Amino acid sequence: MMIMKVAAVGDNCVDFYQNIGKAFPGGNPVNVAVYLARLGVEVSYTGVVGDDEYGKLMVDALNHKGVDTSHVRVLPGRTAITYVEVVDGERVLGDYDEGVLEQFKLNDADIDFLAGHDLIVSGLWWKIENDLEHLHSLGRPIAFDFADKLDDPVIEKAINHVNYAFFASDQGETRELRDFMVNMYKKGPEIVTVTLGEKGSISYDGEKFIRCGIIPCNVIDTMGAGDSFIAGFLKGILEEKDVKECMHMGALNSSVTIQYKGAW
C-alpha cells in the first residue's frame, strides 16, 4: 500500500488552563496533525513559534508525537497562547495573545514542501487563504476548517479552492443549515461537512445529506473534539472510504480525545 503524506499548515498556540496552572500545546492544524499521526498517517506541520519556552514545548511535543517539524520556523518573540478554563467539561476560551503568528507567511520553500504531500490541511485562522489558489493549482487536494464562522469573509476567498470543507454549528440541523451546505457545495468542494457537537455531524456530497451520531463516552474536556473529527474523517478519505464511514471514523477519533484533559 502506498504511504500517504498529509501536510498541516498554519496557526499553533499553547492552551494555558488557568484553573490548574498547566500549559498544553495545541492549535487547530497542530491538533489535526497530531491526531492524524495517532491514526498512523505520515504528517508534517508548517508554521512558526517563538524562541521562548512555549515554542520549545510546541516543537518538542510535536516531535514526540511523530509529526515532521522540519518546516517550523522559530522567530524572536512569544509563541501564541490561549487562556482556557473548563466548566462542566466544556472549554471556555479567554484572552488570546497571537505572538509571532502575526508574522506568519508561507514562502516559496514552504509551498514546495507542501506540494510534496498528498493532502493539505488548513483553516480559518491559518492565514493562507491567499495561497490556496496556487496550492490547489498544483493538484493537491485541500481540506479547510471554517469552524463556526459561517459568515466569515475568508469563506469567499477560500471555498473555491477547497476539496473538503468543514464547518461547525451548535444550532443543530436546520433548513437554513442545509441550504448553506448546498450553497457551499456549489462553490467547489467535493464534500461539505458540519459538526454539530453532541448532535453528531451532517455531510453533503452534491446528491444527498448524510448523518452520523456521536460515540457515547465519558467527557472530560472537549478541547480538540472538532479537530479529532476532521483527522478521522480525512483518514477515511485517504483510505477511499464512503462518506458515512469517514464520518464514523471522525466521531470515533473525537470520542478518544474528549476523554482526557487538554487537546493531546
Rank of each mutant, 00 (worst) to 15 (best):
Gly50Tyr: 05
Gln171Trp: 06
Arg73Val: 06
Leu57Arg: 02
Leu39Asn: 13
Ser255Pro: 05
Asp151Leu: 01
Leu150Val: 14
Val74Ala: 04
Ala147Ser: 15
His248Asn: 15
Val154Ile: 15
Pro76Asp: 12
Phe24Gln: 07
Ala165His: 03
Glu198Met: 06
Phe167Ile: 01
Cys246Thr: 08
Lys22Pro: 00
Tyr83Pro: 02
Val243Lys: 08
Ile191Phe: 11
Ala33Gly: 11
Ala37Val: 13
Gly236Lys: 06
Thr195Glu: 12
Lys208Tyr: 02
Val256His: 15
Asp15Glu: 09
Asp60Lys: 13
Ile220Ser: 03
Val67Glu: 03
Val121Phe: 14
Phe209Cys: 04
Leu196Glu: 03
Arg175Met: 09
Arg178Gly: 01
Ser169Gln: 02
Val72Glu: 00
Asn63Ala: 07
Glu98Trp: 11
Gly232Ala: 12
Lys127Val: 03
Gly226Val: 12
His136Gln: 11
Val32Trp: 09
Leu238Phe: 12
Asp221His: 08
Asp242Gly: 07
Glu53Asp: 11
Lys187Ile: 13
Gly47Arg: 06
Ala147Leu: 14
Ala37Lys: 13
Ala37Trp: 15
Gly116Phe: 00
His71Tyr: 13
Gly40Cys: 05
Val192Leu: 11
Phe113Cys: 00
Phe209Asn: 03
Lys241Met: 11
Cys246Val: 08
Trp264Glu: 11
Met249Asn: 11
Ile159Met: 08
Ala80Lys: 03
Tyr96Pro: 01
Asn218Val: 09
Glu133Met: 07
Leu124Phe: 13
Pro216Lys: 03
Val84Phe: 09
Val14Gln: 02
Gly197His: 07
Ala165Gly: 08
Val243His: 10
Met58Lys: 03
Leu135Val: 00
Val30Arg: 07
Leu62Ile: 10
His136Gly: 03
Leu62Lys: 05
Lys187Ala: 13
Lys186His: 10
Ile111Met: 14
His117Gly: 00
Phe16Met: 06
His248Ala: 15
Ser201Asp: 03
Cys246Arg: 07
Thr82Pro: 04
Glu42Asn: 15
